[in-house]
Nucleic acid binder design. Structure first.
Length: 829
RNA sequence: GCGGCUCUGGCCCAAUUGGAAGAGGCGUCUGGCUUAGGACCAGAAGGUUCAGGGUUCGAGUCCCUGGAGCCGCACCA
């Protein structure tokens, strides 16, 4: 907290009767009684679903919440004013590790911490005056909610979209649980930042890869920031190429490889397989067994950070096996190296050092042959050449690629491979299936029973939810297996199929499963026949607007899209996409850096609200700049926001024209400004330019002040019109101030439903505009002209100007560009 | 390494999408009102639009090169 802030808080300042504490105390109960933001869902108006990312209940709201909620609320309130039937729900993403860790530390149940925090946040949200429909509130940790999370899991399971497999998986040693690919950021745990290691485990997966292409294709339907779409596109990582078979000496099955560069096949001088793949295990010869085992051990011990480092020297080991290059017939060695990944493509590659820098490095280090198959550009002195050029050294008795540029060479060789049955065109995706099991307590139990005779048996729907056993405190301490496993009387059950002894699955679901469908639960939170009422979903989905952070680009936002598509395929949902428009707010930082405990530069939202009031803080957030930019709290002036609100508020006490007066008799100049402001604000709000919209309201306030003090005066009807307009526009950002203004103006609450002001188009037309006359781009004169002057008239007028004639000084004109009514540019001869 | 975004008065940011560089706010300064004020009212100063080149009658805006900052991905064959 800066000194300035404390000063503001301590010294009472005369704000001309403006008292935000009193206003907050006065209006909150009034609104709660009126409950104006409940979605009607009765067909009386066009529906609009406004959604903001629900909150994780770790303590009270912070500055980031303050920003995202303020921005989201501007849009929601705008649509309420415009008369839409807005659904603006709120809930909590209340499963997850922080609650569990807190429970261990305090020796209590995670629910205690969770629900206490939810109440704290709910109180703060109410104080923050957000236009939520509280009747739809949900918590993902409620059994009534997670029963449907489990129900959905079972439907996925039935369709083969949820399955178990053994694999090397990401493991966070700190959180003692596995992580999805999406939760590993730069080799570190997305949640706690600890280095991630690998473990071989049998885990549950969702088959996201089945939807890779549709996740790409349907991006066309989304009005999302290009940045996010790009991230998803890269994450899905579609690449077109070919499978090619390489025969291996003494082995029945050929090795299949994926390559995007089949045109370089003639340059494949060795092969590399992933060391942790079954293939490596099978191929290694007895002579090389010792070296291979040693290498594999070293690879497993390395962390993801080490493995991902691209400047690390290549490592690998010869497996003793040889394959045959299908086009050259050459005998080529097969190596194992950890730069080849076991879970991408087939876990094996053909190495073409001449055209691939990784293969070049490897070949150089281990003395393997290098053959160029693309002619590098003149003067190329690098190593591997990855650019385009004519193929060279690429012919055998049956096929000749030499001289062809890469695309043609690719096509020809793949045709040949397909004819010979040696390969085929294919598409590969970088996206992996979503690993959803977690070895932790505070999540939805996976509703599967493992039976020695029947295998994986789903818990029957009528036995849902599978509730968590009552465990708390030290019992939850991470020890690498799920805490649920130690609840023996919970684990041991009769198999639903054969009634024999069986055990429950002891893992819980990734909390991203909970959040992949919460927006659907909102449409019918009381529904008992399924996760949501399909009819209600038809009415509300897809959500028109989603507001939240960009950190979810390839996490929640991708998972929610996947769930929506599966539910669509199940016939439960018309929508194929969950969120039509997306707005990512920036971060609130302080003095150039992210706020953090270690830096000690944190700003507490509650303190800010105490010092400046809810409205001033909301206004500061919205006015700071474009919503997707980061905002630096040190650059901003909540005191300035407060000053403006007070200035606006004082107008409402100055108005002398009675409520209901006919505005049309008011001062024309001020009326024009008012209507222009509303027209501009409408457009600015639709395109997320809230900061500019606030600036327009400030202009209107300034113009109104001037009209009162030195213009037509406080009794003019135009002044009332302007101030009522200010109140309504301001109600999106500063609801308490706006409501108080509305009352001062003689109206009943609530200004939030006053209705968006109607623009009179006649008041938008200007009587005259200033036309700039340039000579060779330099301004020489200005003319007041009619807005609908013709090009010809304007040109004549401009040429007749004294200033122009003087500047031309007898020179003729070579060219005259006329852009009526704003500009004439004369190019002299 | 690859890709994306950003760069405009001291500061946060506008600029009708190629047409007068400045809307709004903060800060500074001057005057008024005031016992006084950080409150209120009126007004003012402040610029090579990151640098260089190009396209154009005209560039903050489009293109190229470079710089700075932020972000994403990073052995994906």
């Amino acid at each position: 907290m800066s000194e300035q802030v404390e000063h503001e808080a301590d010294a009472p300042i005369d704000r001309g009767g403006y008292d935000f504490h009193a206003m907050q105390a006065k209006w909150r109960p009034v609104w709660e009684k009126l409950d104006p933001f409940k979605a009607r869902d009765d067909g009386s108006a066009e529906r609009r679903y406004a959604l903001t990312m629900f909150s994780y209940p770790s303590g009270d709201l912070h500055m980031g919440h303050g920003e995202v909620f303020a921005l989201h609320d501007v849009l929601a309130r705008f649509w309420f004013q415009q008369g839409y039937d807005v659904m603006n729900p709120i809930g909590w993403d209340s499963f997850g590790l922080p609650a569990e860790n807190a429970a261990i530390k305090r020796n209590e149940h995670p629910a205690t911490y969770t629900y206490a925090n939810i109440e704290t946040q709910a109180e703060s949200i109410r104080r923050y005056a957000l236009s939520f429909d509280w009747s739809r509130r949900l918590h993902t940790s409620d059994p009534e909610y997670y029963r449907w999370t489990q129900w959905l899991f079972l439907r996925f399971f039935e369709r083969g979209l949820a399955y178990r497999k053994a694999s090397y998986v990401n493991w966070c040693p700190n959180d003692q649980t596995v992580l999805a690919n999406e939760q590993v950021v730069q080799g570190r745990c997305e949640r706690c930042g600890h280095e991630v290691t690998k473990r071989e485990l049998t885990q549950w997966y969702f088959k996201t890869t089945d939807y890779a292409q549709r996740l790409l294709d349907d991006m066309d339907l989304l009005q999302w920031p290009e940045e996010i779409l790009l991230q998803q596109r890269n994450w899905i990582g579609r690449s077109e190429g070919a499978f090619t078979d390489f025969r291996v000496e003494g082995r029945e099955e050929p090795i299949k490889v994926f390559t995007t560069r089949p045109d370089t096949l003639f340059g494949a001088t060795f092969m590399v397989v992933a060391p942790d793949s079954k293939l490596a295990e099978e191929l290694v010869t007895p002579e090389q067994r010792g070296a291979f085992d040693e290498y594999l051990t070293a690879v497993k011990a390395s962390t993801e950070i080490e493995r991902l480092s691209t400047d690390r020297e290549k490592t690998g080991v010869f497996l003793g096996a040889y394959a045959t290059n299908p086009v050259t017939g050459e005998r080529i060695p097969v190596w194992a190296a950890d730069y080849v990944l076991s879970d991408y493509g087939t876990g094996a590659i053909m190495a073409v050092p001449g055209q691939d820098s990784r293969d070049w490095e490897f070949a150089e280090k281990f003395g393997l042959p290098i053959v160029r198959t693309v002619q590098p550009e003149e003067g190329f002195d690098g190593k591997a050449y990855t650019g385009d050029g004519p193929a060279i050294n690429s012919a055998n008795a049956e096929v000749d690629l030499n001289g062809l540029p890469i695309p043609e060479a690719k096509a020809r060789i793949v045709d040949w491979l397909q004819d010979k049955g040696l390969g085929e065109r294919t598409i590969n995706y970088r996206l992996r299936d979503w690993l959803l099991s977690r070895q932790r307590y505070w999540g939805a139990p996976i509703p599967i029973i493992h039976c020695p005779s029947c295998g994986e048996v789903p818990v029957p729907d009528d036995q849902l939810p599978v509730e968590l056993p009552d465990q708390r405190g030290a019992a939850l301490a991470p020890r690498g297996i799920s805490p649920l496993a130690s609840a023996r009387d919970w684990v041991d059950v009769a198999c639903p199929k054969c009634d024999g002894p069986a055990e429950r699955d002891t893992d819980t679901m990734d909390t991203f499963v909970d959040s992949s469908w919460y927006f659907l639960r909102y449409v019918s939170p009381e529904y008992t026949e399924g996760p949501f009422d399909p009819e209600a979903a038809r009415r509300w989905m897809p959500a028109y607007q989603y507001v939240g952070g960009k950190e979810h680009a390839v996490l929640h936002l991708l998972y929610a899209r996947f769930f929506t598509k599966v539910l669509h395929d199940m016939g439960m949902l018309d929508a194929v996409e969950p969120f039509t428009r997306l707005l990512n707010q920036g971060q609130v930082i302080n003095e150039g850096k992210a706020m953090s405990k270690s830096l000690g530069n944190g700003v507490n939202l509650g303190d800010q609200l105490d010092s400046f009031g809810v409205d001033a803080i909301r206004l500061t957030m919205v006015f700071a700049g474009p919503p997707d930019d980061d905002i630096d709290w040190a650059d901003l002036s909540p005191g300035g926001s407060l000053k403006f609100l007070q200035r606006a508020w004082r107008l409402s006490g100055a108005v002398e024209a009675p409520a209901g007066v006919d505005f049309s008799t008011g001062d024309l100049a001020l009326r024009k400004i008012t209507h222009r402001t509303v027209a501009d604000a409408t457009e600015l709000l639709e395109s997320y330019r809230f900061n500019v919209m606030v600036a327009r309201v400030m202009e209107l306030v300034n113009a109104t002040r001037k009209a009162i003090d030195s213009g037509p005066g406080a009794a003019d009807p135009a002044v009332r019109e302007a101030v009522e307009t200010v109140a309504i526009l301001l109600s999106l950002v500063a609801p308490y101030t706006a409501e108080d203004m509305w009352e001062n103006l003689g109206h009943e609450p609530t200004v939030a439903k006053a209705g968006w002001p109607k623009v009179d188009p006649a008041l938008l037309v200007q009587d005259s505009v200033t036309c700039v006359v340039q000579i060779a781009g330099k301004v020489k004169d200005r003319l007041e002209v009619s807005p609908d002057i013709t090009d010809a008239e304007l040109e004549q007028l401009a040429l007749a100007s004294d200033a122009v004639q003087k500047a031309l000084d007898g020179r003729g004109t070579r060219k005259v560009i006329v852009r009526a009514p704003k500009l004439v540019n004369i190019v002299p001869a």
